[in-house]
Write a protein that binds this DNA or RNA. Structure first.
Lengths: 204, 204
DNA sequence: TCCCGCCCCTGACATTTGTCATACGAGCCG
DNA sequence: CGGCTCGTATGACAAATGTCAGGGGCGGGA
């Protein structure tokens, strides 16, 4: 038998992380060499322990899984990254893939299945949960231009147009135009629903 | 030694649920007698197995932990309920306590700690995570009247006033009045931010 | 080269909001 | 009973927003 796969586990929920570590430890060919509760901690641990596969939660304080993956890609290219997510939005999938993530799975999979996927990823293959992939494909590509997306993003926390304009360095009229076209492209009722659907689809 | 504590575990994330079951099984006085992935399933399992303590995730498809807790309270009053949450909002805490939940903890606790808390709850005591409790206390009581809260809730998905008025069976002018007073009470910029802060504080 | 799409802006308009004053009935407390 | 708050409603006005119709400038592809 070859050397075991060395894992880094990063999740902010202690309960989950510990439980996961325990379950994965049952697999003979897997060994958890490091754990982290935050994005920066995950990076530090990765540098220190150089795992074969990093299993990252998407939502972590400090820096999310995708950010960590991006950093890892340049610092430790030989370390494969597998992202695990609670309630997966397709938008994150796209971002994750762009960041060089090799696997993307929801937490609804079983531990046994996760172990298999870890092996798959370690072998150099990719794995994306079929359901999440379908969602991402059905969401399609963003019809929004860069500016429209930016403005919509700034609008998503309910700020008034003047503030958006200021933050984007645009004239208020321009902002309204972008918002208007974004809303019509998304078939939304108003900018708030537009912002939400754009976020759901991963277009912002 | 007395009989072991019989547990129901409900969480939609298979990974977590399985891992949790495995960890809790390590404790000699705890035994997981049922697992569920959705709210309704949790209820059915509880009816069938009559556990001593139900450990419920706050977020589940079908019916959330609080809804399940409410149902359990009337159907199986002798079953203690412990709610576990990923990223706890104080609002849910208040709702949960009102529903007769005996314990409320974030998933950042360790498995060992969780086991202790399960024992505490089983003994008839209450346990609320200190940090979450502090948040809830600092959030205070809702300054909103029932109608204001209702209207704000309907407004939270970005619907226009006319639609809110229709859905609430009110005149549009009245809706605007309520919205206006709610916004000023919450010190918000507009109804959207007001709706969000109200939701964060658990006032809707 | 010319055209087209995107970016940025302006101005004008209709509609939707937020805000205020005011009103009336119901229920509650002193 | 007399005030009080709450729910409900109007009407009016100001401000914000959504929608159109333009018009430059710039870069990339036919």
């Amino acid at each position: 038998m070859s050397a075991p796969v060395r894992l880094l586990l990063a999740d902010d929920e202690h309960l989950i992380r510990g439980a996961l570590a325990a379950l994965l430890a049952l697999e003979e060919d897997l060994v958890v060499v490091a754990e982290a509760a935050t994005g920066p901690e995950a990076l530090a641990m990765a540098r220190a322990h150089r795992p074969d596969v990093a299993v990252l939660d998407l939502q972590m304080p400090g820096a999310d899984g995708v950010k960590v993956a991006t950093a890892l890609r340049s610092e430790l290219p030989e370390c494969r990254v597998l992202v695990v997510t609670s309630h997966g939005q397709p938008g994150h999938l796209k971002r994750a893939l762009a960041a060089g993530v090799r696997g993307f799975v929801p937490k609804t999979v079983s531990a046994r299945r996760l172990a298999e996927i870890i092996r798959t990823v370690h072998a150099g293959n990719r794995y994306v949960d079929p359901e999440l992939a379908a969602d991402a494909i059905s969401a399609g590509d963003s019809p929004l231009t860069a500016r429209e997306a930016e403005v919509l993003d700034l609008a998503s926390d309910g700020a008034p147009v003047t503030e958006i304009a200021e933050r984007a360095g645009l004239s208020p009229g321009t902002v309204r135009n972008y918002l208007s076209s974004a809303v019509s492209k998304l078939g939304a009722e108003n900018r708030h629903t537009a912002a939400r659907t754009a976020r759901e689809r991963g277009w912002v």
